[in-house]
Each structure stands twice: as structure tokens, then as C-alpha cells.
Design a binder for these strands. Sequence first.
RNA 1: GCUCCCUUCGUCUAGCGGUCCAGGACGCUGCCCUCUCAAGGCGGAAACACGAGUUCGAUUCUCGUAGGGAGCACCA
Length: 469
Amino acid sequence: MVSRSMNVRTRFAPSPTGYLHVGGARTALYCWLEARHHGGQFILRVEDSDRERSTDAAIEAILDGMRWLGLDYDEGPFYQTRRLDRYRQVAEDLLAAGKAYRCYCSRERLDNLRKTAMSRGQKPRYDGHCRTRNEPAPGISPVIRFRNPDHGTVVFHDQVKGRIEWANDELDDLIIFRSDGFPTYNFAVVVDDLDMAVSEVIRGDDHVNNTPRQINIYQALGATVPSFAHLPMILDKEGHKLSKRNNAVGVMEYREAGFLPHALLNYLVRLGWSHGDQEVFSRQQMIDFFTITDVNKAASRFDMSKLAWLNQHYLKQDDPASLAPELTWHLQRTGMDVSQGPDPEAVVVALRDRVHTLKEMAERARIWYAPIAEWDEKAIRKHLCNATAGNVLQTALRSFASLPDWNPDAIKAIINTIAHEQELGMGKVAQPLRVAMTGGGVSPSIEHTVYLVGRDEAIRRIEEALSRR
RNA sequence: GCUCCCUUCGUCUAGCGGUCCAGGACGCUGCCCUCUCAAGGCGGAAACACGAGUUCGAUUCUCGUAGGGAGCACCA
């Protein structure tokens, strides 16, 4: 067996049966943070030993998700299906040492065992029929079972849950090798974690029940047991398990919905973990402050509005230049021709106080990249069809046409002048212009709205607005 | 059914025996600011599941109850 160093080594071990979902992403994040915090290694391992359900597309989807989130790994990805010889060898060793045995029991016998145990109010467990017998049965290719200790208890100190104790007589002789020649999960993880010298096993708390069994296997192999940290689940808004039906669960769906990877990461890191009252964490701060022992024991609910708040926080905080490429991606996805409008960077600045996601931003930016699609009749009646709007628009039209320098400040100056000279409040000047520029009554500050429309188009739109009065 | 785990405002959480008639954040809400929508500023409502112990003193420790979750596969 490989000897373990004091070095912190964590691993994220998804099974490739679907995309990377938010629960998995948080597990990956915590594994990554724990490794980075201690200057150790983060390993990616694909648990594809169930070749019925594993697909290459799922592997790609998971890798994509990790890449988007920026969770880089130091080793891997390793694949269990390429390590079959190794599992066989370890199983043979166990067999030779008498710590495992071949079992020829039929599925029918096993089913009956389960049923009678349940009917007697007991936990279904294997009765050890083949422990001593070991007689080949015709037509049955045997499985290999681990000989679990009969007495005593297994105690471990979970870094999240605390002390957990398990009676060995609750455990039965689990199958470590299937009749089809493939290892089972509980066996493969142990061999993998051992070979990869994983020092901290961090995973979802749906695995706590497996841990005592795995510890017994470690001990049978004469290996040091790693430390365990079992993370509570992430529930949906209603407190139910996250499901694809009612929730966006795939990490890449969040990209499509207009979220920033670091906003998602920041949201996820605070979901079940805290560092005093701090809400906003840079990547480096997460690494500096993260400690697995501060993770909460209880499940938590996924709250979209808080994620949205964080996302907007980063939209406001980040360098617009860094946001521009991602906005462009969204603009193109909504069918906008980016070459037909302003620099996306300027759009970010104009809209980031007004939206929560880049998707929303792209939608709202439509007014600058495409002709006005529809005119809001109510807004026209209110802001265009009044006594003063006509004159305001006429004046603006002339002033814009002769403006030497087309920029927000100059535009703002013109608007101020119009208000002053015509003795009107800002509302009487800005709103008619806004309707002319956008077809509706809502947009960013009027000077930016006008500026981003561009001089020629602004003039054209004012003319059109005039004709619609 | 059996085993294990969990339980502070609607939500995420701080709290690690007295500092708590419980703090922060999101959300909700009042006011201010204001060219619309936002953003921002200043306020507000809002929680220790319940019951016994231990203790001079429990949100904090122990045990029950209730509620929730997970696992009990030749799935991971």
C-alpha cells in the first residue's frame, strides 16, 4: 500500500451519470478549498465503475462545469474503469488473507433473506451463508464479499458531523466484486483513495452510512484511515431535494441564466459555511479563510434571490472590461449583432446597477443593437402626447445634430439647457426622449441611453417619435 | 421497519454557560435621494422546535418528544 504523507490531499469523485449539479459543485469547491488552503493537492476522479449509467457526454459536462467555475485540479482525471486490474489484485489479496470470500448465493436466496428480515422488523443483511461453505454452485458466477468484523464498533470523528459510532453487528458482509467482474463502489473508493493517498475524504452526507464499512476495509488492508468530512445536502426553496424538475441544477444552466462563476462560488461557499459575518469573498479570501471544521451540520436551502444579489454585486464590482466578453456571449445568444451597436463594455456600465444577471443585461441592451421592436402605447400617450414634448424633441433633434462631440456629458448638457430654457422639470424632458429612444418609459440614465443609441440613430428615432404623436 | 444524522428570524448564518429581552446578510417593508427603472443612504418587522434535567445561571451541556433527512442493492 502507498504510504500517506502529512500532505493534505483531497479529491472530488463524481459519477458521470449527468451534468455537474450545484450540490456537486459545492462539494468540489470545498474539496478544492481545503486542498488550496493547506497547500495540498486536489484530485479529480471519475467514478465510472457503473458502466451501465456512465456516459462520455456526462464526463465532458462535468469537466466543463469544473472549468467554468475555475476549480482546477492537480491530478487526474482518473477513471476507475482503467484501474480494474488494480481492484482485482487487491481483492485477490483479501481473498488470500481470508478477509474476503466468494459467495455463490443466488439472487432468489438473497431476496428472501431481505424479505424475511424486513418482515421481522430487522435491517436486511446478508447472513454469512458462504463464509465457511465456499461451495461453487452450478450456473452461478460468484461475487466476492468482504468479511466484516462481527463484534465491536467502528468510531470515527467526522470533521463536520463530529463523533459517529457504529456497531459492527449492524454491518454485513458487503459485496466488493460483482459477478460481472467489476468492483462495487465501497471497495473501489477505498482502493482509490488509498492509492491516490487521499488524506481527507470530503463528500456528501449521503455517504455517512458507508463510512464504517469502508473503514473496516481500510483496516483489513492494514492501511491508515483518512479523515472524513460529510457535507449536508442542498435543498430547494421548499426544503425538498433539488430536482431537475423544479430547479436549475446543472452548473452550466447558471451560466446560461447569466450568472458569473465567482458569484456562484461565493454563494455556494456561504451555503453551509461562514467566516463571521462576512458575505463577500474573493477567491483568495475563500482559500485563506476556509476551514472544513466550520462547515455546518444541517442541510441548507438554495436561495435564488441571494445568489442574484451576489451576482449583481459582482456586476457592479468587476472591471467592465472583464465582463464584456461574457456579455457579448449573451448578446449573441439572444440573437444580437454586436457589431451593430455600442461597445459591450459601455453597456455593462450603463446597465449593471439595473439588472441581476448578464442575461437580463443582454435583453435590456436590445434597444442599442436592434430597431425598436414595439412601442408602449401607454408611454407614448403619457410622455409624447402632451403640450411640451413636441418642442422638447424638436429642440433635442437640432441640438444633437449639431453637437460637436458625441458623449454623455455633452448630451447631458443639452438636456439641461432644454429644461432650463423651456422652464421644464427634468421629467418633462427626459421622459419624452426616453420614449423616443426606447419605445418605452424605462431605461438607464437618459444621457447614457441617448449616447449608446448613437447620433444618427438617435436622430432617426426622434423623428419617428415625432411622427407617432 | 431498522440504523445513523440534523433542528437560531421566511432564507443563509453569528453564537462555542453569563457579553443575548440573540448579531450580520438576502428577502420583505417605511423614509430620503431621483429624469424612468435601478443603485445608494437611514430606519422597521422578523428566530433560539418542544419537554425534562445538569448548573448559581442555559441559545450554548445531557436525555427524551416532535419534525426533517440519509442509508439499509451484484448504484454510486
